[in-house]
C-alpha cells in the first residue's frame, strides 16, 4: 500500500491594496474576504489586514491582504507594509479622474519599496456608471503601456478589471487574477536560500549543490 501523498505546503501570498482616499479599497477587501458590503466604512488610518484562504489550481493559498491608507502622507509608513509583498492591487474610482491620474505614482512608490511585482489595476464603483469619468479604454491602454514598458529581464504583468464592491461584480475575478499571477511568479523562482550562520572558506571541493555545472577552478564566475 502506498502512503498518502504529502499535501502541498500552503503558500503564503502577500498582497497590498493601494489607491487614493475613498476609491473603495476597504470595501473591495471586505467584499472579497467576507462577501459583505457595508456603506458605513471609516477612513483607513495606517493599514488594516485580513487573510483569506483560497485554492488556485491545485495549490492552497493563504492570501494576506493589506489595506492601506489613501492619504499621501501615510506613504511613509509604506515600507513596513510593503516588505515581502508578492503583488499589489491598484485601485481607482471610475467616477474620479484624479484618482486614475495618481495610479502611476502609487505604482512607482510600491516598486521603489517592494520591487517590481505583478499587479492588477481595478476601476471601482462601476455601479455609478452615469458619473463615470474614466473610460474603460483609457485604463486598459494604460495597463498595456505598463506591460510594454516593463523590464524585459523581469517581466511583470498588469491586468485591468472593473469592479463594483457594492454590487460584488468583478471583485473575485480581480483578486483571483492577482493571486494566480503572484503564485505563478513565486513558483517560477527558486526557493530562497536561508542565510547561513557560518560559511566555509576552506573547502576544496565545490559542493554538490552546484551539480555538474561546477568546475574546480575555484572561480565563482
Amino acid at each position: 500500500m502506498s502512503s498518502n501523498p504529502t499535501p502541498a505546503k500552503k503558500q503564503l501570498l502577500k498582497i497590498i491594496i493601494l489607491g487614493d482616499s475613498g476609491v473603495g479599497k476597504t470595501s473591495l477587501m471586505h467584499q472579497f474576504v467576507s462577501k459583505k458590503f457595508d456603506s458605513r466604512y471609516k477612513a483607513t488610518i495606517g493599514a488594516d489586514f485580513l487573510t483569506k484562504e483560497l485554492t488556485v489550481g491545485d495549490q492552497v493559498v493563504s492570501l494576506q491582504i493589506w489595506d492601506t491608507a489613501g492619504q499621501e502622507r501615510f506613504q511613509s509608513l509604506g515600507s513596513a507594509f510593503y516588505r515581502g509583498a508578492d503583488a499589489c492591487v491598484l485601485v481607482y474610482d471610475v467616477t474620479v479622474q484624479e484618482s486614475f491620474a495618481h495610479v502611476g505614482s502609487w505604482m512607482e512608490e510600491f516598486s521603489i519599496q517592494a520591487g517590481r511585482r505583478d499587479s492588477v489595476l481595478i476601476g471601482n464603483k462601476t455601479d455609478l456608471e452615469d458619473r463615470r469619468q474614466v473610460p474603460t479604454r483609457t485604463a486598459q491602454m494604460w495597463c498595456d503601456k505598463q506591460n510594454a514598458e516593463g523590464d524585459k529581464n523581469d517581466k511583470t504583468e498588469m491586468k485591468y478589471f472593473e469592479t463594483s464592491a457594492r454590487e460584488n461584480t468583478g471583485v473575485e475575478e480581480a483578486f483571483m487574477a492577482v493571486a494566480a499571477a503572484a503564485l505563478a511568479r513565486k513558483a517560477s523562482q527558486p526557493a530562497p536560500v536561508p542565510p547561513p550562520s557560518t560559511v566555509n572558506l576552506n573547502q576544496n571541493q565545490p559542493g554538490n549543490a552546484g551539480g555538474s555545472n561546477n568546475t574546480n577552478s575555484g572561480c565563482s564566475c
Binding site: L201, N202, G207, G210, G218, C219, S220
Partner: peptide
C-alpha cells in the same frame, strides 16, 4: 563566491 556558500565542514 558560490563555493563559499556550501555547508561548513
Amino acid at each position: 563566491p558560490r563555493e563559499w556558500r556550501t555547508p561548513v565542514a
